[in-house]
Amino acid sequence: MSGAEVLAQQLVNGLTLGSVIALVAIGYTMVYGIIGLINFAHGDLYMLGAFAALSLIGVSGLAPGDGAAATWGTLAWVLVLVMAFTGGLNVLIERWAYRPLRRAQPLAPLITAIGVSFILQNLGMLWGALPLEVMGTNAVAPKSFPDLIPRVDLLSRMGLATGVRVTTKDLFVMGLTVPLMLGLHLFVTRTRLGTAMRATSQNREAARMVGIPADRVIAVTFLIGGALAGAGALVRGLFFNTIVFNMGYGAGLQAFTAAVVGGIGSIPGAMLGGLLIGLISALSDHLISARWTPAVLFLILIAVLVFRPRGLLGDPTGQKA
């Protein structure tokens, strides 16, 4: 492979990874935008989404090599159920853990979020011990996620003789994440509820005064953020084919970094940040070494916080920073 091809390959990998990161980053940025909380538990919610997806696929009995109609039909309802599960769970968490703390001291919601993160991670570990065939015998070991999406190299199929591989798996990831993000964008900018959400995010008291039910809008925000994390979890499981109960921490940090780089509170910022972090991770894996990638991402996070706390597309007044 030539240097240009290697670079192009890393771009493809980075975009695929980045679009999954972006789905999770949206959950961070929406919650931060509306109640100013770094929802530390979001990464663990995503992990539970992956466990739910694996369990549902296990229950459905779907296996690699089943016909296209069966595979896509089953995956469609798995997607819906997983999104409902993580979205609903996120609403419950907001209702029981965060809402009572609206007027508490500033550190209380963040510490509560850390507590919720512990709870969810521990639940994920116990989930792995359930007597399901897909969970294997070792509770805490990584679980293998069935490889249901065929990996067909599209460029060589089209007769392009390059070393770069763009597979149907990459296409599947884009095909699921891009419409979800577009739909979210239309929802936030074109609907009444989306407008109410933006208003609440700008000024909760003023929104309440013009008759917006702020608590309900916040609940919807958690629902959407959680559902997108569930979708991201299914996509991730199908793309990387392995999940583990403590993956939420690292995935959450990656997504949070993306949200900060893009400008926390900004939904387009989270999408852009997700793609950028995906690209940077892929390039760092290739140019430096995969084991240094977490440190590289954190140095970027710290640099952004120090030099441009509002990120690329953040609130220019700096109020969210």
């Binding site: 853990a97 009572p100 703390l101 508490a104 001291q105 209380a108 919601p109 510490i111 509560t112 850390i114 507590g115 919720v116 993160s117 512990f118 709870i119 969810l120 991670q121 521990n122 639940l123 570990m125 116990l126 011990a129 509770a139």
Partner: peptide, 19 residues
């Protein structure tokens, strides 16, 4: 295997009821 579940619950409950 319940260590973090209990620590997490304790954090949430203490923040809520006994800050």
């Amino acid at each position: 295997n319940y260590r973090f579940l209990l620590f997490g619950l304790a954090l949430v409950l203490v923040m809520r009821w006994r800050p």
